[in-house]
Design a protein around this nucleic acid. Structure first.
Lengths: 231, 231
DNA sequence: TAAAATCAACCTGTATACAGGCTGCGCAAT
DNA sequence: ATTGCGCAGCCTGTATACAGGTTGATTTTA
């Protein structure tokens, strides 16, 4: 009971902007983690009821998600989670590779011990998955958190916004392909990237951080291409 | 009277989405062409009256403009046209230089005779300004149209979106500085860029188009730096 | 039976009343 | 004269009724 009370009190305290962010992040994550897979129809009314508010603020969130490219709003039909064709997927990955390289070149920030601790935490979480074959959802969450860490290391604010935008636009598609790679490959691949990036971070070499990130995006594309050709 | 009738008929025919785009572009251009200079407070109610609609669709436009970084919405205060500090301005220009280079490298499109005709039209308009000292607004409109042409030449759709986003985010600031450069420098500079880009286009060399664009953005930064140091 | 019209049930879009936040003016107390 | 309070008038935020669009099942008709 106390927990519930404390929870509702903290919810009452939040401003309109904070609530907007909370609901926006919640829905974004549901889309990116495939709680709402591509094609899902979202209803303003139902979500308004779920969050205990009216349609108006939900509509605002929907329009932002549409701007991010995560949903498509159709009058009279509904708001649907978008899918991405392979051509666009590759275009975004090509772009992300370049943006990753730029991360270390445009106004880089100083790497602190906090950053190192954060990535150490991610590595620990990834290593802990060795005995949990098939925990793709935790793998995706770690990828989310790694992206957040890399955002912190991107000093050029507009560049950071774009990198995030492109990340969230394809995250769910990447997540869709993940199981097809097989658990071992996906798991070891993530551990590998985390290790490379950590090494670059302890050297305070943001340029290398971006470089490894770029390489890993290319690796993803290559593996995907192999997957699409062979079977 | 007939004109008014025809006008109102065409307005009645447009869908909600078309009206949204029309009003969005209208307000965006008013901001970029300094009809609403930075700091201007926009009122939902007044604009709703001006366009003959209710606050709701205007709010949608406002939220999009906020996402584009052109306005800031403050509860209880109003919706204000944003200003940009010099640090952010430089960050965006650094980013735009890189994006311009990428334009020719990521999935370039084929240059058609239509594209050539378009830039020839722009060059004509710019040359026609030789006898109109101080027509900075037409200079800005030509720059807008050039940006639109370059968008057409950008095959990578997400990259195109980003280039446009960053263009509109700083366009009004660039326009603010323009008169300080002096008419002759601003005018000849634009003619120069148009000529360079046209030459690259007739060679079907999009890579060079992007390169010249990048160079011109750097030139702008250099001139601005000189302006900020000397006086 | 097959095709066409109908309509009910859902969706988003719009208008509007009301709630809540911010600012600055004016008045009162010190 | 100055400081503080209160409130009017503006703003955006929210809830909600209604308008308009879309779809698909159902009924009607040839």
């Amino acid at each position: 009971m106390n927990v519930i009370e404390a929870d509702s009190v903290s919810l009452d305290d939040e401003t309109g902007a904070e609530r907007f962010d909370r609901i926006y992040c919640e829905l974004r994550d549901r889309i990116c983690l495939l709680t709402y897979p591509p094609g899902t129809v979202l209803s303003e009314t139902k979500l308004a009821k779920e969050f205990g508010i009216s349609r108006t603020p939900i509509r605002r969130v929907f329009h932002r998600l549409e701007f991010m490219g995560l949903v498509q709003i159709k009058n009279g039909v509904g708001t649907m989670v978008t899918d991405i064709d392979l051509k666009t997927f590759k275009q975004i990955y090509d772009l992300r590779k370049r943006l990753a390289e730029m991360m270390g070149e445009l106004s880089p920030v100083e790497i602190t011990s906090e950053h190192i601790e954060t990535i150490d935490g991610l590595i620990e979480r990834a290593q802990a998955l060795a005995d949990h074959k098939g925990a793709f959802d935790e793998l995706a969450r770690i990828a989310n958190d790694l992206q957040r860490l890399l955002s912190d290391l991107t000093g050029n604010a507009p560049l950071r916004e774009m990198i995030e935008l492109m990340y969230y636009r394809v995250a769910r598609i990447w997540y869709t392909f993940l199981p097809q790679f097989g658990w071992d490959k996906a798991h070891s691949g993530q551990l590998n990237e985390l290790g490379e990036i950590r090494a670059a971070m302890v050297d305070s070499d943001i340029r290398s951080v971006g470089h490894y990130r770029s390489i890993d995006l290319q690796r993803m594309l290559t593996q995907l291409g192999r997957l699409l050709v062979e079977p």
